[in-house]
Design a protein around this nucleic acid. Structure first.
Lengths: 235, 235
DNA sequence: GTCTATAACGGGATAGAC
DNA sequence: GTCTATCCCGTTATAGAC
């Protein structure tokens, strides 16, 4: 068996198992057993489990980011000198990951689930990889959104976008809880419909009026640290 | 040392470590070391790590649910026979977990972080516990929201609520990624402000027009919102 | 009830034959 | 490059002393 095949088989299998069971619960033994390769091959090709995780993530992030940025570029080009359309920006961001379901390799939302696992992983090494892979596209989308929503502080856009990412990750990527919780049924609905629901939801959330002041019922704490507006702020 | 003290010390320490490092990455050794109790005490008092996790979760869920439902009852009482106010319902749902930061035991958003870890955990046993603990309150809030938003299909409300929960969990509960990703700085902002941002965001999302694919017998959304490039996207 | 000691197991990593 | 065999460690769990 050629070296490349082995490497790829490991990556493919690891990707699937990581997405379904999480990184911590997936052992190298399970991966190599399913991939029908030898246990030692992982360390030979990747050096360690950590670096295998890193490889898996960066292999999927590269085309994903490219596609997202391509769509964003298109949206900005269509808008000329003005701000791009909010719908187009959101579709460029949320569309590519969700549409990967049409790729047979990523059936069952494998890619989005994997992203969810990574985002939820507490280990600093995983978080580092995520920052390395996604910081730049995230910043570009942040900039585009600021142009769409000039009345909002950059910090507010940032957090609202994070709520949206959280929504995607939690509802689609980590499908354990949602479907059964409320007795709606066992099956996750068609991802295309979820995408539409999500974009509608996030768009409305982004277009909400700026946040100011504190929600009733919460008594503020002596301001030793954080203060409301601006503060540490944005560049 | 009394039996109760030991048990409680284990619960307190486990809670903190689980919240910070996740369930899988926290060993019983780490817990007993920090709690200054014997390793075997965990198995003596709880039987297994799984049941310790269950205990930790149910200990925090009980008062949390009680408070949430109390606030919901109040909101419904204030509304008389009409539907409760949407703001009040959302504040009843999101407020209690976030406000736990004023409890010194849950400083640093420990409670919400723990909820996040649990929701993101792939293990069926953990998901079972979550369903057991949170199904009933979740259904009650779902019913209240349906009364606030009678034009939305129950399924749509359900998913939008999940997006909101995802937003909370991902942005507040799992703080590894957000603050640093976009160069906004290292510190998580004041949770009171986050709560308000979140409520504003979720409220707007809930009040968005129905999604096109929804089963509610309603008018389709304005088509200006639905253009998702990429063809495959929506049906 | 609590702790010491250890069992029983599975994990990741590695040396060395081929 | 690949595989076999093995190492060493940390894990949960348990048996038995106190």
């Amino acid at each position: 068996m050629s070296e490349i095949e082995t490497r790829t088989k490991i990556l493919d299998t690891a990707e699937r198992l990581f997405a379904v069971d999480g990184f911590a619960s997936t052992s190298l033994r399970a991966i190599t057993r399913e991939a029908k390769v030898n246990l030692a091959a992982v360390n030979y090709h990747f050096g360690s489990k950590s670096r295998l995780i890193e490889e898996v993530l960066s292999r999927l992030a590269t085309p994903l980011n490219k596609e997202r940025l391509r769509l964003l570029d298109e949206a900005e080009a269509r808008a000329g000198d003005g701000p791009p359309k909010l719908d187009a920006v959101l579709a460029a961001f949320f569309g590519p990951p969700i549409r990967t379901r049409t790729d047979p390799r990523y059936a069952d939302n494998l890619l989005v689930r994997l992203l969810g696992r990574a985002h939820a992983d507490p280990r600093e090494e995983v978080q580092q990889v995520l920052r390395r892979l996604f910081s730049e596209p995230f910043l570009r989308f942040g900039a585009a959104l600021r142009r769409c929503l000039p009345h909002l502080a950059a910090e507010e856009i940032f957090w609202r976008m994070h709520f949206g990412v959280g929504g995607m990750v939690f509802s689609i990527a980590i499908p354990e809880a949602p479907p059964r919780l409320a007795g709606i049924g066992d099956k996750t609905p068609d991802p295309a419909i979820l995408l539409e629901r999500l974009v509608v939801f996030v768009k409305a959330g982004l277009m909400a009026p700026p946040t100011m002041g504190s929600v009733s019922g919460d008594k503020p704490i002596p301001p030793s640290g954080g203060d409301l507006p601006g503060g540490e702020g944005l560049r």
